[in-house]
């Protein structure tokens, strides 16, 4: 496939081209690096919002309402909704679209469901690259919805400009458990299902917890340590609280932009992404290199062969000239931009 042509069609917002390009990234196609290089100059303008929280609190419903609210403000929206893959069979039920149908058929919206495919951070390996592809088609906002998270799925923080943490009054004691992990990465907290009993007590507890538990040392790139995290309430299935959420997010993001913290945060996101890219390449190579597997198998059990020494020996074999060629493929003529 001609990558230049594909890039042109993505930029022209051709849905089928965007969709096929995402599959190339997701399936780790040999052309995916060239494709991402090609769209790079069309990326960086959209604001990226992450939506995370425990299973069943209403993340997809909130995203559905956010899409509608953004469309009303004449913004074009891309959405990536991640659901878990089975660790046993590799299959997945991707059901977030069920709740994202308020808008119906609309060329200003692009929704893609993704399975985690073995990644454990709440996203899939290809999520951020997929956001790039969708953004290149001219979107103003990209919303990334994580899988239903527990305590430590915090990868979303390193992937977006702002994180919305969704909870419900029933999240109850779960908050205690979440203090150290997911609570730290929230830029805005929404307590959804506000019609359920126990809302007031929950919000009060939450605010108290936030004041106590938010460590000053968290390298949070947005507000200053003195800034309070906004806690909003919503009843997303009735559309209540969504306009306020969007207003809060817009205000927050423009604050980030003016203070220069948005650029700083994006640099961090990029740095993380480059690191992941390098590690993925190394891992792929390592896993497919029979020489290394054999070397390790041979060394295990030998007198004086500690795990550290075996690893060093393997690394010496791994990082040689031949490997360099495998890890850094030269661009084929006529491809890339």
């Amino acid at each position: 496939m001609d990558i230049n042509n594909l890039v042109k069609r993505i930029v022209a917002a051709d849905k089928l081209s965007i969709s096929r390009a995402i599959s190339m990234i997701e399936n780790n196609s040999p052309d995916s690096d060239n494709l991402l290089d090609g769209i790079h100059k069309y990326v960086g303008r959209a604001l990226r919002i992450g939506v995370t929280g425990p299973p069943g609190v209403g993340k997809s419903t909130i995203v559905n309402e956010l899409i509608a609210a953004l469309r009303k403000r004449d913004k074009r929206v891309g959405v990536i909704a991640v659901d878990p893959s089975s660790i046993f069979c590799g299959g997945a039920i991707l059901g977030d679209r069920i709740r994202m149908q308020k808008i119906g058929v609309d060329n200003g919206v692009f929704i893609r469901s993704m399975a985690t495919r073995g990644c454990s951070g709440g996203l899939s390996r290809a999520t951020v690259e997929t956001a790039d592809i969708i953004e290149a088609s001219g979107k103003d906002y990209i919303i990334i919805e994580t899988v239903g998270v527990g305590q430590s799925e915090v990868e979303i923080f390193r992937s977006v400009d702002a994180v919305v943490l969704v909870l419900s009054p029933e999240s109850g004691d779960a908050i205690q458990a979440m203090k150290a992990g997911i609570m730290e990465i929230a830029d805005v907290i929404v307590v959804n299902k506000a019609d359920r009993p126990g809302l007031d007590a929950f919000v009060t507890n939450l605010k108290n917890t936030l004041e106590l538990a938010r460590p000053q040392s968290v390298p949070h790139l947005c507000g200053s340590s003195k800034a309070k995290i906004p806690v909003l309430t919503a009843q997303a299935n009735a559309g209540i609280g969504i306009a306020e959420l969007l207003d809060t997010l817009e205000k927050y993001l423009s604050g980030l932009k003016e203070s220069g913290k948005l650029a700083q945060r994006r640099r961090d996101v990029l740095r993380e992404r480059i690191k992941t890219h390098i590690l993925t390449r190394l891992e792929e190579h390592l896993l497919s290199d029979k020489k290394i597997t054999k070397l390790v198998d041979n060394e295990i059990g030998k007198a004086g062969a500690t795990p550290g020494k075996i690893a060093q020996k393997a690394l010496r074999v791994l990082i040689n000239r031949k490997t360099r060629k495998v890890l850094i493929p030269s661009k084929k003529r006529g491809r890339g931009v």
Binding site: S85, S86, C89, G90, G91, A92, I93, L94, G95, R97, I98, Q101, S113, A115
Partner: peptide
């Protein structure tokens, strides 16, 4: 569910 158990990714729209 059967397709998921067979290792496929199923987008269920409801």
């Amino acid at each position: 569910c059967a397709l998921r158990d067979a290792g496929m990714e199923v987008i269920y729209t409801g």
